[in-house]
Simulated assay, not measured.
Amino acid sequence: MKDFHDIRFPTTLSFGSVGGPERRTEIAALVNGFEERNTPWAHSRRRYDAGLALRSLDDIARLISFFEARRGQLIGFRWKDWSDFTSCAPSGDVDFEDQIIGEGDGVRREFSLSKTYRSGDAEYVRPILKPVDGTVRAGLEGDELLEGVHWELDAARGVLTFADPPDIGVRVTAGFEFDVPVRFDTDRIEVSVASFQAGEVPNVPVVEVRL
């Protein structure tokens, strides 16, 4: 059995969930009062709680079906992070020049999708492994190219393959919507029908997985 199912958690159930990125920072306090800070993680990891988005007993039934089909924590799946799921600003529309994903060298044909987060002079480049098929646009040096003619998408890996390698120095750009690869962070779902109807919801932790 594969350890990842290329299926998205129902968006009607994820809308209203809470979560976001986490980092791991190791801090050593020195005797002079200064600190040394390091991290073993090159990339952040996202966590969510799907329980807060559940609004009805039908939602609970859909959750349990999805949970059982994934065998609890065993099998990963796609998750839509409603606060961060596009290559552009939340108020914008996906454009083929949203992100620079590489530069041509005249030989290379494969380019991995990524999203760059900037603040001041600092930036973080996040690999995008689960783009949403049908939303991806791509271009070279300001000219949009056609999927199926000039390039193909591997939606399972987030990789664009061009029919011809981009020329040396040519900017390779892309725009897209994307999901987060996750798994349930529990092997147990506890639901009390009485308490749920009274306004209480179960805890349904979800955590990003490395692929």
Rank of each mutant, 00 (worst) to 15 (best):
A29Q: 15
A29C: 13
L30W: 06
V31R: 12
V31E: 12
N32P: 04
N32A: 10
F34P: 03
E35W: 10
E36L: 13
E36I: 13
E36Y: 12
E36G: 09
R37P: 06
R37L: 11
N38R: 15
T39K: 11
T39H: 11
T39N: 14
T39R: 06
W41L: 15
A42C: 10
S44W: 04
R45K: 15
R46C: 08
R47L: 11
R47F: 08
R47S: 10
Y48E: 04
Y48Q: 04
D49M: 02
G51I: 01
G51F: 03
L52P: 02
A53M: 04
A53L: 03
R55W: 05
R55T: 14
S56R: 06
L57M: 13
L57G: 07
L57P: 01
D59I: 04
I60G: 00
R62I: 03
R62Y: 08
L63S: 03
L63H: 01
I64F: 12
I64P: 07
I64K: 15
S65W: 08
S65V: 06
S65G: 11
F66D: 05
F66M: 06
F66V: 10
F67L: 13
E68S: 13
E68V: 09
E68K: 08
A69E: 10
R71A: 14
R71Y: 12
G72S: 15
G72H: 04
Q73V: 06
Q73L: 02
L74I: 07
L74Y: 09
G76I: 02
F77E: 03
F77Y: 12
F77G: 00
F77H: 01
F77D: 04
R78N: 12
W79K: 01
K80A: 01
K80E: 09
W82K: 04
W82M: 05
W82V: 09
W82D: 13
S83H: 09
D84F: 07
F85C: 12
S87T: 03
C88Q: 08
A89F: 00
A89Y: 02
P90T: 02
S91G: 09
G92F: 02
G92H: 07
D93W: 02
D93P: 00
V94N: 09
V94M: 08
D95E: 12
D95W: 00
F96T: 01
E97F: 08
E97T: 13
D98F: 01
Q99N: 06
Q99P: 00
Q99C: 03
I100A: 11
I100E: 06
G104A: 07
D105M: 05
V107S: 14
V107I: 12
R108Y: 10
R109E: 02
E110Y: 05
E110N: 14
E110W: 05
E110T: 12
F111I: 04
S112N: 09
S112T: 09
S112W: 03
L113T: 05
S114R: 15
K115A: 12
T116R: 10
T116Y: 03
Y117W: 11
Y117H: 15
R118Y: 01
R118E: 01
R118G: 03
S119A: 14
S119I: 05
S119M: 03
G120W: 04
D121E: 09
